[in-house]
């Protein structure tokens, strides 16, 4: 490996598209600078690219940020729902075991599940739109 003190200058000149005579003369005798010049001028040929309008990118970012924030806000509620479901199942099993019959706990669980399901439908389709 053979670093050259002129390499940065040669690269800058290649970016500008103007190579001063002294640098050109140096590059002709320096393998490092000649390679730098060759690679930089080749890669610099194609740097134009179409990009989406900034307003669109910003608007999408805002929209997504809002959606992410809403999802984060819903997380504790989802955890509560899950906890309530587990508790309900535990209570049902407990009641069933204590009473020796599964009829009453099953009716209770069915009722609570129906109310919970209705609440979920309202929250999902009516409140959040």
């Amino acid at each position: 490996m053979d670093p050259c003190a002129f390499e940065t200058k040669v690269l800058e000149a290649a970016h500008r598209g103007e190579l001063p005579v002294d640098l050109a003369a140096h590059a002709a005798s320096c393998a490092t600078c000649a390679e730098t010049l060759l690679v930089a001028s080749f890669l610099g040929e194609e740097t134009k690219a179409e990009v989406p309008p900034p307003g669109l990118v910003y608007w999408k970012a805002e929209l997504r940020a809002r959606r992410d924030q809403a999802e984060r806000a819903m997380r504790p509620m989802r955890a509560m729902e899950m906890a309530a479901l587990i508790l309900l199942c535990a209570v049902a099993v407990g009641l069933g075991a204590m009473s020796g019959s599964w009829v009453l706990p099953a009716i209770g669980v069915g009722f609570v599940a129906a109310v919970g399901g209705l609440g979920w439908v309202v929250k999902t389709y009516l409140v959040r739109g």
Binding site: A14, V21, L38, S41
Partner: peptide, 13 residues
Amino acid sequence: LLKSIGYCERMVM
């Protein structure tokens, strides 16, 4: 690679 495909630098002097 560039030399092998015959690419030569084209710099504006």
